[in-house]
Design a protein around this nucleic acid. Sequence first.
DNA 1: GCTAATATCGAG
DNA 2: CTCGATATTAGC
Length: 343
Amino acid sequence: MEVRMENIGNLHTVSHSHQTDNLMNSPHTRQSVSHRNLHGRSATMVSSMASILDGAGEYRSEHSLSAPLPPAMTMSCDSGMSISSTYTTLSPLQHLPSISTVPEKFSHHHYPHPHHAHHHPAHQRLTAGNVSGSFTLMRDDRGLASMGNLYAHYPKDISCMAQPLSPLSSGLGTLHDAQQPLGAYGPGAHLSNDKMISPGGFETHAAMLGRGDFGGHGTGLMSTLNGLHHPGHSQLHSSGSMLSERDRHEAGGTQACGSSQAEEINTKEVAQRITAELKRYSIPQAIFAQRILSRSQGTLSDLLRNPKPWSKLKSGRETFRRMWKWLQEPEFQRMSALRLAGV
DNA sequence: GCTAATATCGAG
DNA sequence: CTCGATATTAGC
């Protein structure tokens, strides 16, 4: 286990140093911390991904997390499919004690999922400890501070914003959220070198940052961010998909708030996003199909190319829900999912 | 030329 | 719907 985690941790590690340290109690944690400086290792990422795919290690962040945490957290972690309903429900509950109570260290709201993201700092901390801390933390450093504020204001609304996909957004709307979101943060700031370096690689960090935090959801946010972004990154996305340009607007009408699954999924959009993500991380359809969807490569290919409208789907909805769910997961979680599925 | 990945398509 | 075989394509 450790090995894997370490890798992961390193990858994400952000340039800045701060809170992360505090959070992590676990031994591993430290390691990651030390490495954090390395941002630029897209390569690393890749390799790690690869290994994951292979199914080499086996730790599943999800489970571990779930145990300790409250229901809300659990669901997010579990990734099971049943969650969906829960999702919605939970959102409201989540705001517990929270942020105010906790000191900055804990408060990093890095959380990937918009839904729970904001609250329970305390838990996070736990999570980190129990699980693997390493990765969990990394993502938050990045821009979330600002986020915190936002969240505070909108306890539950956020969820809505967060959801990138909108059932409605027909087709392409959303695909790219992940991709360019963060450029905004400023490369120089934390990532300094890395990003530039990783042209071919993936903008892993970027992605992480983006989606992890608020990524492409909130329109307002996004726009702001976008404005900031600098030149260097453009390359990053190049590899993946370029649908982006127009997509960004999508946000305007996001409607589905708690849509984890109960709601309709815009199959077209999901298909495109999945396709883009697979490309980005060089994840073969066969692997994804098999591990995440429990389907064959041919099936996935067909679904991605010819997604049927949600309304016309019957049992096939389950498959799309899985894809959708996967899209919503944070980087490390996706990775682990890929890896453990194989196990 | 070989291999891996993806697309296509018939069958259950 | 999904599988599984096969054709096609892309990369080395």
